[in-house]
């Protein structure tokens, strides 16, 4: 369980994080979302006590940060946090030792995880000899090896192929079943939608919206019309009754105004494009977030630059 309340951080007159609050429960996958530079990484660094917040508090299973808490957190940094010239197994055992694990136990666990990630043959190789995706796997092992109760992953899916994304996802679910708190950041909304139970969208240092995925969808859930077609769909943004159209080549997601008639819309479109399939659906997170980010930018147009 991770509780974040009113977290704030300023860097030289720029407010990077401004009153961020959220809660990630036990047995929950929590997605920390937002566009690049929204303040996700800064928030994570404050949670990990790497940065000291200018305001707000963080508690871990109800307790403040302490040396004991350090050993119960696992962390995967956004950039490759590994010694390039060091050997795989040595590195993993070292990081586990820093989280309070005994060397022998760490070695045995490391071999188990390396085998699961098909990296056992590389255990005596140097980190720099590995591909980017494999390095990401090693980092993931470092983050979870010591059986932490809170796992924090900054952009864990960057550089991973689809097969390994599924592997990561499976482990997410195992950790969730074991009652761990998993917090991960991403700017890819489809991933967040597939993986998280609860989420929080940050834009320009502020929480724009949050809650369970279902809640968010219900709250922002004006109807959407999903259309698959062939032809040029550029005109869809101009259709009466359509608030906004998200075009994906051969498909489109139309955000409908209340009271818009679906039959009329289909009729209008039918003359201009070939519709192969259509359905009235829940809006995707992507569409909700584009709208939410757009709204919050319109409300507070001051540009914010963070790392």
């Amino acid at each position: 369980m991770l509780n974040v309340t009113g977290l704030r951080k300023e860097f030289a007159a720029v407010v990077a994080v401004d009153g961020v609050s959220f809660e990630a429960g036990n047995g929950e996958v929590f997605g920390l979302l937002g566009p690049n530079g929204a303040g996700k990484t800064t928030t994570i660094r404050m949670i990990l006590n790497i940065l000291v917040p200018d305001g707000g508090t963080v508690t871990y299973d109800g307790k403040p940060f302490s040396d004991e808490v350090r050993n119960r957190i696992g962390y995967l940094p956004e950039e490759r946090g590994l010694y390039r010239k060091s050997k795989l197994l040595d590195t993993i055992v070292y990081f586990a030792g820093l989280r309070g694990m005994k060397r022998a136990a760490a070695k045995a666990e490391a071999m188990r995880w390396l085998t699961r990630f098909s990296l056992e043959a590389f255990r005596e190789r140097k980190v720099e000899e590995l591909s980017k995706g494999n390095q990401q796997k090693v980092q993931f092992v470092c983050a979870i090896l010591h059986d932490p109760s809170i796992v924090i992953l900054d952009e864990p899916f960057s550089g991973l192929d689809p097969v390994n994304q599924i592997l990561f996802k499976d482990i997410f679910h195992e950790l969730r079943a074991a009652g761990k708190t998993i917090v991960f950041s991403t700017h890819q909304m489809d991933q967040a939608e597939r993986l998280s139970d609860t989420l929080c969208l940050i834009n320009r240092g502020r929480v724009v919206l949050g809650g369970t995925v279902r809640d968010v969808k219900r709250r922002y859930g004006t109807n959407s019309l999903h259309v698959e077609f062939s032809g040029d769909g550029a005109f869809m943004n101009e259709l009466p009754g359509v608030r906004r159209a998200l075009l994906y080549g051969n498909a489109a997601e139309l955000d409908l105004e209340p009271g818009a008639k679906v039959q009329t819309l289909i009729g209008t479109m039918n003359g201009k494009i070939d519709i192969t399939k259509f359905a009235l659906v829940e809006p995707s997170l992507q569409s909700i977030f584009i709208q939410a980010v757009g709204d919050s930018n319109a409300a507070a147009p001051a540009p914010v630059e963070t790392s």
Binding site: L48, N49, Y75, P77, E79, R80, G81, L82, L98
Partner: peptide, 16 residues
Amino acid sequence: EEKSNRIVEVLVSSCS
């Protein structure tokens, strides 16, 4: 190296 690879973040979140 620790600074440029952000290893230091892992280190200081593990120990003081």
